[in-house]
């Protein structure tokens, strides 16, 4: 079954076409790498898929809902983590999760249990009452991810979740992504680290508002005749 079905999705800002009739599907439980150059239109496309921005034309069905007519239902059924750290520094670890859980209307008792389970899984139970600004960046990123999936969304959008993070924490983060996907959650992730693109089941590469390439990492490397996704990227996104 498909979690995301994008059909000729387009966004224009005046004369400028940010996203130009892109079409693709993402399967349930799939880790889909959404790659592209800076300014290629990735963020605009993600905003449309998450119900934050209305498309100029085309459609997208996300988690079974239409982005044009049911944006509110989409927001309830997806998780989102942005490249910029998205938690409140002056709240504790627990309070941050409580805040997001409450916004998603998770019943109070259930919420407490979910937070404690989630912190235990991250090995962060002892840090529950620490202010977020005092914990290391790697933990913050993992915490932001756990918070984004607290309401058990069917799909999670991750916008450059590992930007600037050290090589060890990047790998721990990808382990979390794998674990989450293995429970049937669909992951759409953007990254500028091309080694991470290799961890995705399938990837697409955007340039100038268009999807230039789409397939498994192996398929794309064969198609372009190179050995790494970095080379694929450089070949297809020359300026």
């Amino acid at each position: 079954m498909n979690s995301i079905e994008v059909d000729h999705l387009t966004k224009k800002f005046g004369d400028f076409t940010a996203v130009n009739e892109i079409s693709f599907q993402v399967k349930e439980g799939e880790i889909f790498g959404f790659l592209g150059a800076n300014g290629a239109g990735k963020t605009t496309a993600i905003k449309m898929m998450s119900g934050l921005l209305q498309p100029t034309s085309g459609t997208a069905i996300v988690a079974g809902y239409d982005v044009v007519t049911q944006p509110k239902l989409i927001k309830r059924n997806i998780g989102y983590m942005s490249q910029r750290f998205s938690l409140y520094n002056d709240l504790t670890v627990f309070e941050n999760m409580q805040l997001f859980g409450t916004i998603y209307k998770i019943p109070r008792k259930e919420l407490k249990k979910r937070i404690m389970d989630s912190l235990a899984a991250l090995d962060m139970t002892k840090q529950a009452n620490l202010l977020v600004h005092s914990i290391p960046l790697g933990w913050k990123q993992k915490l932001a991810f756990a918070t984004a999936i607290l309401h058990k969304p069917k799909i999670v959008f991750l916008d450059e979740p590992t930007s600037g993070v050290d090589p060890i924490v990047r790998r721990e983060f990808w382990n979390l992504i794998y674990e989450t996907a293995s429970t049937g959650v669909t992951i759409l992730v953007t990254t500028h680290y091309m080694d991470e693109a290799e961890y995705c089941h399938r990837i697409s590469i955007m340039a100038d508002g268009n999807i230039r390439l789409l397939g498994t990492p192996e398929e794309l490397k064969q198609q372009v005749g190179v050995n790494t996704i970095n080379d694929v990227f450089v070949e297809y996104v020359k300026h």
Binding site: N38, A40, S163, G164, V234
Partner: peptide, 14 residues
């Protein structure tokens, strides 16, 4: 200071 953080691979190379 981190001139290429968040920059795509092609721009980084340039």
């Amino acid at each position: 200071d981190e001139p290429t953080t968040g920059v795509d691979p092609v721009s980084r190379k340039e």
